[in-house]
Nucleic acid binder design. Sequence first.
DNA 1: TAATTTTTTTAGATTTACCTAAAAATAAAA
DNA 2: TTTTATTTTTAGGTAAATCTAAAAAAATTA
Lengths: 220, 220
Amino acid sequence: MQSFTEENYLKIIYHLSELTNTVQTNAIAEQIQTKPASVTDMIKKLADKGFVDYIKYQGVTLTERGRNAAINIVRKHRLWEVFLVDKLNFRWDEVHEVAEELEHIKSEALIERLDEFLGFPKSDPHGDPIPDKNGRFAKTQFIKLIDLKIGDGGTITGVSQHSSAFLKHLEKLGLTLGKQIQITDVTDFDGSVEILVENKQINISREVAKHILISTNGKN
Amino acid sequence: MQSFTEENYLKIIYHLSELTNTVQTNAIAEQIQTKPASVTDMIKKLADKGFVDYIKYQGVTLTERGRNAAINIVRKHRLWEVFLVDKLNFRWDEVHEVAEELEHIKSEALIERLDEFLGFPKSDPHGDPIPDKNGRFAKTQFIKLIDLKIGDGGTITGVSQHSSAFLKHLEKLGLTLGKQIQITDVTDFDGSVEILVENKQINISREVAKHILISTNGKN
DNA sequence: TAATTTTTTTAGATTTACCTAAAAATAAAA
DNA sequence: TTTTATTTTTAGGTAAATCTAAAAAAATTA
């Protein structure tokens, strides 16, 4: 059984592994809000316990054991987010911080019953897939909005940034999960994107477009 | 804001305060499963922070501030227990350990919304009163079953032991909250008590009788 | 390839919550 | 009121997770 802190490291390493194969010390330090020296210490500990493979100066990768542990934490995090939104009427931009705490509650029975209580949801309020109790989940095929071309369209099915500030901004723009969008123009000057949502033309910054995930329903 | 550990100390001191006015170091050590020397350390820290009044060798009492903090933790613990039993179908003997973890989740909004979701319950699955958001709750007038005399009767409205072993035992005997009981005999030899529940005569040990709380509906 | 910059690690400290062993204070018994 | 027993505190230390500052390795640039 891992400590609260170890669990956070595993979770962060797991998320960073989706971007790069081996994960760098500095990247972890930035995510976990700590110093690289502290990360090195913890990585050694996780390596000793068999959660990560680690070669000095080369970065880390999760072992099978480490990945399973990480996926379990992600599962808990996402289930709690569904609970907060579906049952306690939290908004999607309010749930992340609370779920960061709830994900560390240890009871397995609690999570299985919570899953059942929520009706075995497949995705969380931000569109991220929820692993089942065996750690399996659909590899969702997302495209970043920024990577679409003029004329391309699709459905908003996820976000890659969970901060309250970002999500509130999306809400204000009417860009919530399930909304159909289509790219109508891309501005050369600042890379901002012109999109059509519910028959309205809006302009979003490149930065925002990077963190909106689209499932395309075929181009036109 | 207090640490996980500080919260546990406050909670334990609060519960022990219901028995004796000033709480002894050894009593805390026993409850918290630690050594008296460690308790002394923590007490000093809590005193520095203004949560307890402390005189060397004399024991501690909670300050107003300490009591408020403790009651808030008790409120959270009991609300989570209701959630686990009412919504996730846990049995009353399964909830204590999980609630020991959940009680430390910090979001105030979470607790207010959970309270509302549960319909503002007044008592937890063991019959203990749930403080409202201002820390107010009904001082319940319990009598220990062991203190009743032959012929006395009443309703089981609480227990003063939350261990799974004890609660399972009560369940097996049919002694659950709300059951009407009447004392029919007390054995001199071992102090065990003969009681009438649902037209059946059963015998319970002195130890068990000590931890069952009765609200009397008048003697006969 | 050499020089510079960036990344990562080591070394040595700090803080929190705990420990053991011994000393001091208080309470109980003779 | 001594003596004995119990309770509590002090002193000094440990482990976990962090830190700063400096050294070492790797990557980048000139």
